[in-house]
């Protein structure tokens, strides 16, 4: 059975680097997209096992991108973890309304993020 693919849509290079280095230790395969539009495109081109979606993104917000992916029958069933920059009241609800599977607040602990990923998509 091939390794699980994770698509990380995030504009900040350092945050991408954290996840890249975090997942380097695991068997997950990481793909990256720097904005909402390219994130949606990447998901449609090659269906990932899990999407990590930032909210504040250039071109298209993470919430809009999630809605679009949910509307597309090909990507409708992919688990999406939404990463928001701050856990404001109502943010979680907004994420769930958009169709997110789970929700994690930034700044997140890489350790917690990894266990959340493992919980949704077991490594092997």
């Amino acid at each position: 059975m091939s390794d699980k693919t994770i698509l990380y849509v995030e504009d900040n290079e350092f945050n991408r680097k954290i996840v890249r280095q975090l997942l380097a230790q695991t068997r997950y395969r990481l793909r990256e997209a720097p904005d909402g539009e390219s994130g949606v495109r990447a998901a449609q081109e090659e269906l990932p096992d899990l999407i990590l979606m930032d909210v504040q993104l250039p071109k298209m917000s993470g919430l809009d991108a999630t809605r679009q992916l949910r509307a597309d029958p090909r990507t409708a069933r992919v688990p999406i973890i939404i990463v928001t920059s701050y856990a404001l009241s109502g943010d979680e609800q907004k994420a769930r309304d958009a169709g997110a599977t789970a929700y994690i607040a930034k700044p997140y602990s890489p350790r917690d993020l990894l266990s959340k990923i493992r919980e949704i998509v077991p490594e092997a």
């Binding site: 900040n12 350092f14 945050n15 700044p107």
Partner: peptide
């Protein structure tokens, strides 16, 4: 401010966890 802070805390935690 939070965006760089996320990186600082994240890298520190990974360092502490022996990821490097």
């Amino acid at each position: 401010l939070r965006t760089p802070l996320n990186a600082i805390l994240g890298f520190t935690e990974m360092l502490t966890d022996g990821l490097y």
